[in-house]
């Protein structure tokens, strides 16, 4: 098969992947009162990673981004559960959340909510699960280095 010429894709991906990651961070922090939140932010991050995988191939990104996405998903689940358990410390019911207004140096008066910690867990779970599903379908024939370890 002739070698495809994808110079334009390779060049624009370097820019577009970073725009996507920035947009995902914006969506993650825009949640709670506007469209956005952990789920769609995680999906956007996964889309950026998948664009990089599609452009540069599995081996190269595996070297640049040496993450085990299954461990990422479990870590996110742990953060989400701990943010629920943390409400027991203050004598509240499971998954109770609170918020407060603080004066931060650059941002000024900012609303900080503990639901953000739960959202961070959702974000990590979505990134981990999405990339695990897509990469395990896409790289069916490859050797899985984590398969023997059982994680």
């Amino acid at each position: 098969m002739n070698r495809p010429n994808d110079l334009i894709l390779r060049t624009t991906t370097q820019l577009i992947a970073f725009i996507l990651l920035g947009f995902s961070v914006y969506l993650f922090f825009a949640g709670h009162n506007a469209p956005g939140g952990g789920f769609i932010g995680g999906l956007m991050t996964a889309a950026a990673f998948i664009l990089m995988y599609m452009t540069y191939g599995f081996e190269k990104i595996e070297k640049i981004l040496p993450l085990n996405f299954r461990i990422l998903a479990v870590t996110g689940l742990l953060i989400a559960v701990l943010s629920g358990v943390g409400s027991f410390v203050f004598g509240e019911e499971f998954l109770s959340h609170s918020f407060g207004y603080f004066h931060l140096p650059i941002l000024g008066k900012t609303e900080l909510a503990t639901a953000m910690i739960f959202d961070l867990g959702v974000y990590l779970v979505v990134v981990g699960i999405t990339l695990t599903i897509i990469l395990s379908i896409a790289t069916d024939s490859h050797e899985d280095p984590y398969e023997d370890a059982g994680v």
Binding site: P4, A34, P35, I50, L51, L135, T139
Partner: peptide, 29 residues
Amino acid sequence: NDVVLLIGILLFIGTIAIAKFIEKGVIID
């Protein structure tokens, strides 16, 4: 407005995936 941007980005990635599948037969190689 964010939703319009989001649909555009997902569409872009989907189009690239379909184009690569037609061209090479695999999406992530």
